[in-house]
Computed example of a mutant assay.
Amino acid sequence: MLESARDVAIASLVALRRAVYPPACVACGALTDSEFALCGPCWREAGFLLGALVCDSCGVPLPGQDDGPVQCDDCLRRPKPWSRGRATLPYRGTGRRLALALKHADRSDLAKPMGRWLAAAARPLLSDEPVLVPVPHHWTRLLRRKHNQAQLLASEAGRHLGCPVLPDALVRRRATKSLGHGGREARAAALTDAIMAHPRRGAALRGRAVLLVDDVMTSGATLSACAEAATLAGAADVRVLVLARAILEP
């Protein structure tokens, strides 16, 4: 908890510095040559996954090299309710700081570079001209945070990809507690019947390939609930795209 508070405080200081001394690294505030960029050390620490061997289902990085689609052990044991997935970077170091800043420090400016990174990671998922659908927030959480970070990311990624974005095709009909510290089963139970297709606008998912967008994937419980809701609404295929992928211990 203290570590998260420290990360948010750093992100707020970075935002203040950027308002007075542009251009600066979006992660640490060090001077950079261009706007909305990372400095050299933060870029190296980020460990971008573009071009790396990753699980074709959940996007988690894998050791070794392989020419074809591969899946991690967890996805082989517990198949996901979506077909393919990608992440931009691992949820640690730079990736963790950026994700927390977007979520908790009112750093909506971060969606601009993040959307560009997401668009690059999404390239293998673009067959069948998918629509981008952000993971929904409950209205009470929107009041507290002022924005849905998944919607900000989806809008920016969609702009780069030329793909339509359906910001309210899915809705969260009841509030859920933070899932950050629960186990896999607890996370899944907390989301039972929490997410559904919008009674009217969810019809736009029928027959379409859907690309779900979120900021962080941990166990995948939230994305699973969204994928199941999209499938029930008639989506032809569901894929997932996240900014950061947490690497869980087996």
Rank of each mutant, 00 (worst) to 15 (best):
K112T: 13
K103V: 03
A175N: 15
L170Y: 06
L152Y: 02
R97S: 07
P90L: 01
W82M: 03
R200G: 10
H138L: 05
G115R: 01
E185K: 15
M196N: 04
A169Y: 04
G93P: 01
S108V: 10
A188K: 14
H160Y: 15
L152G: 03
M196S: 12
A99M: 03
L125K: 00
L191P: 01
I195A: 05
P134Y: 07
L76T: 11
G115V: 04
R78G: 00
L100E: 03
A122C: 09
T176G: 06
R86M: 09
R159V: 07
D74G: 06
Q149P: 01
R187A: 04
R144A: 12
L102S: 00
W82I: 07
G158P: 01
E156F: 10
L100P: 03
I195G: 03
A121V: 08
A186D: 13
R86G: 05
D168V: 13
L143F: 15
S108F: 01
L161V: 04
V165N: 03
R144S: 12
L142D: 09
Y91P: 00
D168G: 10
A190F: 03
V165P: 00
A194R: 05
G85T: 08
A157T: 08
G115T: 04
A101D: 01
R97L: 02
P79F: 13
L98R: 08
S108Y: 05
C75A: 10
H181S: 15
S83C: 12
L76I: 13
L170F: 08
Q149S: 01
A99W: 00
P130T: 06
H160Q: 15
L142Y: 10
K112D: 02
G93T: 04
A122V: 07
K177Y: 13
K112P: 00
R187H: 07
D168W: 14
V133H: 08
A111W: 00
P136A: 09
L102F: 04
A188M: 10
L89D: 01
K80T: 11
Q151K: 06
C163L: 14
G180I: 10
G158W: 00
G158V: 05
A157E: 08
L143A: 15
T140E: 10
L126A: 11
N148P: 05
L143C: 13
L110P: 01
D168F: 14
